[in-house]
Design a protein around this nucleic acid. Structure first.
Lengths: 337, 337
DNA sequence: AATACCATTTCAAACGTTTGAAATAATTGA
DNA sequence: TCAATTATTTCAAACGTTTGAAATGGTATT
């Protein structure tokens, strides 16, 4: 049980040279003699020397910690996105602190404060569904700490870095797919209006209709949030008019689509078997459904996460100017089941 | 844009006193004059002073980082367990690095090395399904860094700290429930034999049968892993004997149970509607199934996670001796749908 | 008025690195 | 052989805290 970690000083004493020589040898300084370097590096390897991160961080005035705030880890999209972030962060010597806002603004503010105190070097955030005031996030940039908004972001604000799924394109594709299958009455079930992508997706839907000469009908559009009850009432609105019954449905999120399908089935909707559905997510649970959606929109969350961390690291390293606001889009794919 | 963080030195200069007085005032040393304390604390508050963690960690020879290795964040149990860990860790000033082994031993070894280099103060780990050699984890304890195994652990090894779901009790309860509903032929679908809880759950099943005078039949037991194909063939084995057809099924994990249900339905099993199923997990997707399990075993992952971090912090703070190996069990509940 | 005794504050070293400047050693050229 | 040049190593300060020991100032005791 070797309890005291190896330090530069210890190596220096063992090798009978100064701490700075050891440090420079390990960092491959050109002024250090090759033979010396070799001796130092071998000894460091043999003794399993690992530099003390706290010391380095103190010296470099960095924490090498990335903060990430997201609504919920139980959401399949966010969980997958984490993977992309972690992989790349680790590879670059950064650690990631993940924190969940549970889609509550108050909690988000708390977490932001906590992360600011933790002196994170950068922040990746997917805002809560009712974040409209951004002062708790702006304070990061005010202190020179870069922030990247991912997925959920303040759509009206151009002065921030964003990494988004190309949710317009995804929704366009899905709608087009349904049109190509002969549907004329395609309903659209959108999410909370506060969340930016709700509108992007709607625009994808609209544009697909327009480009394919399918008339838009306002009564085929309804909105819900993450609550089952609201979804059910939205679905009731969409399907209560026997004159103008939709034959297909595009929904902003898969678990919500499942709620919709379940409801339609539960009321024994007369044309249930003809209704073709598509939702965002491509969650694996689809395979267990008896009446699965005909297709899913794969959002490539890992890629969104990876792009976010890549951008953030570039900002941290000042490879991109902090005011040179970036917007990165990650395409979706339609996966037919 | 105030770019240089406030330091003790800065406060000291502003207040015209020494750095140590400021430090001690903030840490509420009894030797510091009350009025001085007040002045210092007020100034610290007004200037939003936050102590530099790297400096503190360096001084205290700690990283205040907890490492956590788990198979997969996409697994509902683990995702939920994280919540318990993070909450409690944060409250105590610790940050958590989450890393996924993807149930691969090699990756697990890599992650362990990475976390060791990150100088975590403690480790929480759910081992991969084929971890049998523990040298990569033992090295933590060899260096005085406490390790808590949670959920998945080396069952044969008593010399380690464990926090487990009381999976025996959960399975007992589920089996008992089915017996009480009149079932005599209850099948048990177990998980990978390498994972400890597979056996605990089996024992719960066996004991419930025994205690209720239901004869045990070896042909009603089959094992699978996380692969769908293996699940299907296990199910085929269980249900291929028309003489001795099970009427109920207890499965070690819910998504796998869903695979089983799906298969039975797909082959139009004659008694499908009579078969009553229970699995571990209580995943929310149950509500979307047409033929949902009759009940679920709720494993309380948050509580498991919280117990793990609590124990780990006690070990880190030497409130519990590192060799005083603990075993904590968290009870399950049967949730009838 | 000298001493002892508090209360309070400050000093100074330490944690483990990094790094420009200074020092030393080795080599070259005349 | 000596100065000049170059190669290599070491010094010393810094990053921002913490903390035991030492110093300071004041009050009480004799």
């Amino acid at each position: 049980m070797q309890n005291t970690p190896i330090t530069l000083k210890f190596l220096a004493e063992k090798l009978k040279m100064s701490v700075s020589t050891v440090s420079k040898a390990l960092n491959n300084y050109p002024t250090i003699n090759e033979y010396t370097k070799k001796r130092v590096q071998e000894m460091a390897r043999d003794l399993h020397f690992t530099p003390n991160k706290s010391a380095i961080n103190l010296k470099e005035r960095k924490s090498r910690i990335i903060g990430i705030i997201l609504p919920n880890l139980l959401d399949y999209f966010f969980t997958r996105s984490i993977y992309g972030v972690e992989q790349f962060a680790m590879k670059n010597g950064y650690n990631v602190i993940i924190s969940q806002s549970h889609d509550e603004l108050e909690k988000e503010i708390q977490l932001a404060d906590m992360l600011l105190k933790s002196r994170v070097d950068g922040l990746i955030v997917a805002i809560s569904k009712n974040t409209q005031d951004f002062s708790h996030l702006d304070q990061f940039e005010n202190m020179g700490i870069p922030v990247v908004y991912y997925t959920r972001n303040p759509s009206f604000n151009l002065s921030c870095h964003k990494v988004l799924g190309n949710t317009f394109q995804g929704c366009y594709q899905a709608t087009k797919f349904l049109i190509d299958r002969g549907h004329k009455k395609i309903a659209y079930l959108g999410g909370p209006k506060m969340i930016n992508f709700t509108h992007d997706r709607f625009n994808g839907y609209i544009n697909a209709l327009k480009d394919n000469n399918v008339p838009f009908q306002a009564e085929l559009v309804a909105y819900t949030d993450f609550d089952k009850e609201n979804t059910v009432s939205a679905i009731q609105n969409l399907f209560n008019n026997s004159e103008n019954m939709p034959t297909a449905l595009v929904a902003f999120k898969e678990p919500i689509l499942f709620d919709a399908i379940k409801y339609l089935k539960s009321i024994n909707h007369p044309k249930f078997n003809e209704i073709e559905c598509i939702g965002f997510g491509n969650t694996p649970f689809i395979s267990y459904l008896d009446s699965p959606p005909i297709a899913s929109i794969e959002e490539n969350p890992e890629s969104v996460g990876e792009n976010a961390i890549k951008l953030l690291l570039q900002l941290i390293n000042r490879e991109i100017e902090i005011q040179d606001y970036q917007k990165i889009m990650v395409d979706c794919q339609l996966v037919v089941h």
